[in-house]
């Protein structure tokens, strides 16, 4: 239950930043916070108290390893979503730079050339 509440709360903080902030950079930070909320949630899903890392090393007993290691699948998912997040944030920052070049401001309320 705790991972769910924790991740939802962090997601809401990120959404608040996206909705309420005017500064484009802060909006991008909000997007990053929502992404990390979900990444953290995925990692917490695989957590097991007293678990060992899911990496098999030489001379380890297979059954014991399977019984003690944490779930590796959410970690694989998280790595993938971190990579995607990197691409998204890089593109967002590039867009913000270009927007600043065109409008001369980072204030969202002044970037309103489209009719809405």
């Amino acid at each position: 239950m705790i991972p769910y509440l924790f991740a939802t709360a962090m997601l809401l903080i990120g959404l608040y930043a996206i909705v309420a902030r005017r500064n484009l950079i802060k909006i991008v930070i909000g997007v990053a916070i929502t992404e990390y909320a979900v990444n953290l949630f995925l990692i917490l899903l695989g957590y097991r108290a007293g678990g060992i890392p899911p990496i098999l090393s030489k001379g380890m007993d297979l059954n014991k390893f399977a019984a003690n290691s944490v779930d590796p699948l959410p970690q694989a998912l998280t790595v993938t979503s971190i990579v995607i997040g990197l691409g998204v944030i890089a593109l967002l920052v590039a867009l913000v730079l270009r927007l600043y070049e065109k409008y001369g401001t980072l204030d969202e309320s002044e970037i309103k050339r489209l009719k809405g």
Binding site: V93, A94, L97, R98, Y100, E101, Y103, G104
Partner: peptide
Amino acid sequence: ALSVYRRFYPP
């Protein structure tokens, strides 16, 4: 691309 070609100055 983000640093060398940076255009972080007003128009």
